[in-house]
Design a binder for these strands. Structure first.
Lengths: 222, 222, 222, 222
DNA sequence: GATGAATGAGTCTTCATTCAT
DNA sequence: GATGAATGAAGACTCATTCAT
């Protein structure tokens, strides 16, 4: 287990450097000097640089995969939104806690390899598929409007990624606050709810802002 | 002009290769062999590989910058949503028309250089700021719910990016369809509008159709 | 003759640049941009860069060769020292007038080519041989001490080169002053003549500095 | 020490090649193939080609610097000429022993770099200054004729350089013989001493053996 | 296991020279 | 003759990986 400890130590240092400089600007010399090991030792624990990087990437990916659960419907199951919220809390808290892995995933997980690129893309596709499934469920339950849930799911995924990317670097951010914003946004968009509660987009009630909403969420073109 | 034509030719080929393989896996040999020019010729038109890449990147960035207009409010100005839609149409149609540049921007614009990275980040921040400004405007006009518009703006930006990234490679997407999905999603989220104007979720006022979404868009925990 | 004028123009500009930067740091682009001609035009007048450089070098070399005359002895011939002085005046005045060529010869005429190197070396050897011949003549006439005239000749040559190199860059220097210093030095070295006018080196007369000269120009070891 | 041995090995081979071909015609491939090392190994020990060359150059320069001592005057100090001789013996024996470095210094130490060029020039200027100081001392002691000691010092320096350059390649020169020739030449020039103490040439005092050299070391023209 | 010296394939970049217009 | 775009050989340097100790 000494072996595992060493590996972990190197991974820890490499993680930090990869997060900061990305894969290509990080060289093995950086890693070993930070980790305080010899060049040869590095290759005792990792097949090569790419292998180490891949391991870090798979670490995030699998941690995240574990944290995203399929929504369950049925008697006795928690409210779907609660399930969403719980998913988000698990994901976001991990991402914010593991800022370096997050940075690697969001900023440096692209462009070495068809293989790694695909791996990441597959992960995102899986997440998007889960989101889409939830949406489809919502549509079935008439809770979600009947739109292109595939596009929706990627929009939500992208929103989450970008918010996390934005929030991540700047020190401490409240997981809950971020989750609520994402959740609200994903569910309701930006519009004030009372302006929307009429059939169709843009047929807003006349609210207190005297009819101008009509011109804001105006009629769709299509 | 002969000169400009040559440059354009090289840019065209390089664009394709960079889009496919990214910056690091693309070498000058790839570019020149595709472009059918000699090694020296390349350096006649570009200072170096990075310079060429930067030019492509700045091309997208500046084209997009031009296409995103600040919303204007006031008598005689078009409906804000129309302005949003117009922005989106300009942006999305460009991105879908310039698939390769889009790929470069979305997948390969990170990790060589502090400088280039910053340039891209600055661009995105500018876009997010424009979005946020529109949202703030909406809040003032009581059309947008009063939430963290900064986070919202990044969520929207991220949504757009991810949808474009998903839709771009297939090449079969209609600009209008994509724009409408994004717009609807951004404005109203996923929920059926008539379910929203209820207590519990987010900052919603107490609307008239209380409680129907109770089980799905249920009360926040915090 | 238009052709010769063009050539001369290019040579003039190239001369200045070569003098300043040497052969290797000077590139064809430097020369043509200074000379205001196109790249191709350069090769209309010169076979290549080396050819141009060689021409400049041969220009100095042949000018100098012409200026160094064999000493003539015999009734009616001028005093040998006058002949030396005249040689020096011709050489030095040329070198100081043609500072750029001088710089090229003294600082940048080495290290491209066995051939050019040899050419320069041959030139210097020829000059040294002429000097040696003068010295041998002097020895015959019992005016020059009987030493290794070959070494002497190179010492004189080196002295001249170094003095010219030192004097050359700093603007105007009097040809006559330089010539006299060289001549005096070459003929008499540094010692005060009256301390030497005794047989053998180092058997100085007791001068006004009370005998310490004896210890200064002390007895030779060999 | 293993490291130093390797460095020394590379330096040794590089020295030989640089001496033979100069800086520009020598490429890294030459050096490594001679040294029997791989390309990468070269850069393990030297930052780049210039760095290696600079090191060789500084090696000669500093060895020589150490070997040239300021003349000391005062009771108990050795005879000044002995000190000169000792300096020369140290310098010349080093230069003849290190033929390759000598070649590099004398033939290939010019024209890559303002910086290196300056370094060499500074070295020569320092040596010339030391020589000048000795001469000034001699003037004070009335042992050296009162002439432009600055020019004299460069003349002496140049003489030494040229003699060494001439003598070095053959490899058959005796240090002592060369030193004596240089010393005699520097001190007494070429003239037979007994002919010098006459009016007419240079700054000679009127000595007792007036006029015998009249026809050879005749009156100056100016 | 650990070390770090050695490796060499891979890339970029320069620049003298050519040649079609 | 003049031009300047194009050429490509030559060379420097990097860095992930190997291997003898």
């Amino acid at each position: 287990m000494q072996r595992q400890a060493r590996r972990a130590q190197v991974l820890r240092h490499a993680k930090r450097i990869f997060a900061r400089k990305g894969y290509h600007r990080t060289n093995v010399a950086d890693i070993i000097s930070r980790a305080g090991i010899a060049r040869g030792t590095f290759y005792l624990y990792f097949e090569n640089k790419r292998d180490l990087f891949e391991e870090l990437l798979q670490q995030v990916v699998s941690e995240l995969t574990v944290r995203v659960l399929r929504l369950k419907v049925g008697p006795g199951e928690p409210d779907p939104v609660e399930q969403l919220r719980a998913n988000l809390v698990r994901v976001v808290s991990y991402l914010l806690a593991e800022r370096e892995l997050t940075d690697i995933l969001l900023h440096h997980s692209t462009g070495f390899d068809r293989e790694l690129d695909d791996q990441i893309q597959t992960f995102y596709d899986r997440v998007a598929a889960l989101i889409q499934r939830s949406l489809d469920l919502g549509v079935q339950m008439k809770l979600v409007r009947d739109a292109d849930t595939r596009i929706m799911s990627y929009a939500i995924l992208g929103g989450i990624k970008e918010v996390i990317a934005m929030v991540s670097p700047s020190g401490e951010a409240s997981v809950d606050a971020v989750v609520e914003e994402i959740l609200n946004f994903g569910l309701t968009g930006v519009a004030r709810p009372e302006l929307l509660a009429s059939p169709g987009l843009g047929h807003a009630h006349n609210g207190e802002n005297g009819g101008r909403a009509g011109s804001f969420f105006g009629p769709k073109l299509d």
